[in-house]
Write a protein that binds this DNA or RNA. Sequence first.
DNA 1: TATTATTGTCGCACTGTGAGACAATAAACC
DNA 2: GGTTTATTGTCTCACAGTGCGACAATAATA
Lengths: 249, 249
Amino acid sequence: MRESSESVGQNTRGEGYLQGLATDLVIFGFHETQLKILLLEYQNTGLLGLPAGFIRDDENLNDAARRTLTQRTGLGDIFLEQFYVFGDLGRHDPQPLRSILIGKGETPPDDHWLLRRFVTVGFYALVGFTRALPNPDALADRCAWYDLATLPPLMLDHTAIVQKALDTLRANLDHKLIGANLLPELFTMNDLQQLYETILGQKMNRSAFQRKMLALGILERLEKRFSGGAHKAPFLYRFVQEESCQTRH
Amino acid sequence: MRESSESVGQNTRGEGYLQGLATDLVIFGFHETQLKILLLEYQNTGLLGLPAGFIRDDENLNDAARRTLTQRTGLGDIFLEQFYVFGDLGRHDPQPLRSILIGKGETPPDDHWLLRRFVTVGFYALVGFTRALPNPDALADRCAWYDLATLPPLMLDHTAIVQKALDTLRANLDHKLIGANLLPELFTMNDLQQLYETILGQKMNRSAFQRKMLALGILERLEKRFSGGAHKAPFLYRFVQEESCQTRH
DNA sequence: TATTATTGTCGCACTGTGAGACAATAAACC
DNA sequence: GGTTTATTGTCTCACAGTGCGACAATAATA
């Protein structure tokens, strides 16, 4: 395939890809009571942006997003879902991409396909923080986790895309098995509650939270964990595997 | 603009439009206890399809969808929202479009832009049945309401698109003011309940439904209506206008 | 051994909901 | 005109879910 021999930057006409359509990925992780997302850093530009991808003309849209997710994280079988299409004219600005291409030592022609207007399909993904292996793409020089609470300015309209993804994550928190995708295999009830409190941005009642989670019938209680603090040892839990599990789209 | 002098069919290269990207509209109406959608009929082909539109290269995506909605219904300021992007390779089939163009007396070249692969953004709209004036586009010869319960086979993957729109409508029934957009200005509690029962496809308890709706605080009770059946006259209601009304996106 | 911090669970009050009952009443019928 | 009929507005009761505080249990620490 073309990508192996030249990057999407050198392929100045974007041959083999759908024109004017891209995917932007908001990849959520959770670590030490903080919600994080994966960002790409572009050398010599100071620019930060969401992992993005293009759709090959022999590829399904959702498959293209999953391919990009796998390339950035090393993980394939995790939660990934569309949440919104960003198609305003106002989001078109060739300057950041031109800077990025120049930063890579290229001299893009004015009609380079990456400098034209793009409509982008926003996807959000839920990733086990410790399992992911962040990996930059051909145009970036670093891929790293950033705290959502203290997010620096992002290129183009990516800040608005992140906000919309967070809104969607909050709205879907009770319907989709968000926890199963952001927590490690084993966790305590307190871990789960801290995840919920971080996503929703508000404190929750401890006993009510426990009752509600146990009533859902999706948690399996395991042995107690003897380690840590000067207090009673908490149970460990695991999400029960259902055949109707929503971990994949 | 181009569209006024020639149709998207005669414009064989789709100049002035984004390539490979379209909108498909699922326009819901409600009449006599039946949920209905607007469909286009294509002459000499027997084909039925959703109203679709293209995005001009100087136009926002959402504006393009609203423009198409207005052209099909005569209505502009009504509920319209994205719900999913359909981008599988499997949905690409040039045959229906070729038949439609031939049915219009044209002889499309094999590389006609409408015969290439399209990714389509699905929108759903809520329309007051009596206010809409269905109006076909340049390729269709009729635009008419069809009962959702007895939907005939549709072209391409449009049946799946309708199903996904209905799923979204049901999921959003309690969050967005669906009723305000599908009912006439004045209505009875029974009208509202029948709308809910039709959308959800299940009977609901009468007194509980009334309690719930009144508790939402979005209904204004008006005078009673003296007309109709051999029974107590029901109150008329109206949705109160809030500044945060979700009738527009 | 006593202290401390956290955990598992219970009780209580409040809210929302499903279900049935009953009076009120407008039209239809004799 | 009186009676019947169907629908409406509202009430009560039971039950599930939730917010909030209290209490004992317990693992590490002093």
